[in-house]
């Protein structure tokens, strides 16, 4: 691994840290891995607001499904 590559990695790490802090501050409830994925998507040209809507939707779905599963387990 060349020094350039290492620099790049560390600065990427730093940037991710900063963004994570901001997301903490704004109370987005994203974990670091998801945030990295999202940032990557945005870098690829995804519309940020649309992405936010996706996250929102997925969360809702997730909550729904876990709710279902728990009720299912209760039923069992």
């Amino acid at each position: 691994m060349s020094t350039k590559e290492a620099d790049r990695n560390s600065s990427a790490q730093q940037t991710l840290d900063i963004l994570y802090e901001i997301s903490q501050l704004l109370n987005t409830q994203l974990d670091k891995a998801t945030l990295a994925t999202c940032i990557g998507m945005i870098e690829n040209g995804v519309n940020p607001e649309a992405l936010a809507a996706v996250i929102q939707e997925l969360r809702r779905e997730g909550a729904h499904s876990t709710g279902q599963s728990t009720t299912a387990s209760h039923a069992r």
Partner: peptide, 19 residues
């Protein structure tokens, strides 16, 4: 590193407003 910082921040902010 990032090229689309504004979008990144906007993403976070939108997410938080939605919350």
């Amino acid at each position: 590193v990032l090229t689309k910082k504004q979008e990144a921040v906007q993403f976070l902010s939108t997410l938080s407003t939605l919350n």
